[in-house]
C-alpha cells in the first residue's frame, strides 16, 4: 500500500496529498495519475463515496467540513484550498 504523506501543518498540499492517497486506495487507481485538475465526479466518486471521503477527512483533520465544499468544487485543487482554509479558520476560532 502507498504511503500517506502528512505535513506538519495541514495546508493545501497536505490536503491534496491525503485526497490523492484516499481516492487511489478506494478506487484502486494509480496515485500518480490523479491530477489537481481532476474533479471528484470525473474520477468516479459519486455522492455516496464523496460523503464517505468527507467523513474520513473530518476524522483525519479533527474538524467539521461542510459537505458543500466537496460537492460544489470543480477540481481537487479547489477542494484542497477550501478544506485547508476551513480547517485553519476552525483551528483559529478554537484556539
Amino acid at each position: 500500500m502507498d504511503h500517506v504523506q502528512i505535513a506538519e501543518k495541514v495546508d493545501e498540499a497536505a490536503v491534496f496529498a491525503w485526497l490523492k492517497t484516499y481516492i487511489s486506495n478506494v478506487l484502486g487507481m494509480d496515485q500518480a495519475s490523479i491530477k489537481g485538475s481532476d474533479g471528484l465526479d470525473s474520477l468516479g466518486l459519486d455522492s455516496a463515496l464523496t460523503t464517505a471521503l468527507a467523513m474520513d477527512l473530518e476524522t483525519w483533520l479533527g474538524v467539521e467540513i461542510p459537505l458543500a465544499i466537496l460537492f460544489e468544487a470543480e477540481t481537487l485543487d479547489n477542494i484542497a484550498t477550501g478544506v485547508a482554509r476551513e480547517a485553519e479558520r476552525q483551528h483559529a476560532t478554537a484556539g
Binding site: T51, M55, D56, E58, G62, P66, L67
Partner: peptide, 15 residues
C-alpha cells in the same frame, strides 16, 4: 492521532 474512532455516519443539510 490517538486511536480516535472512525466516523460511521454523517448528518448534513446538503444530504
Amino acid at each position: 492521532l490517538p486511536g480516535q474512532p472512525r466516523q460511521k455516519v454523517i448528518d448534513s443539510p446538503h444530504l
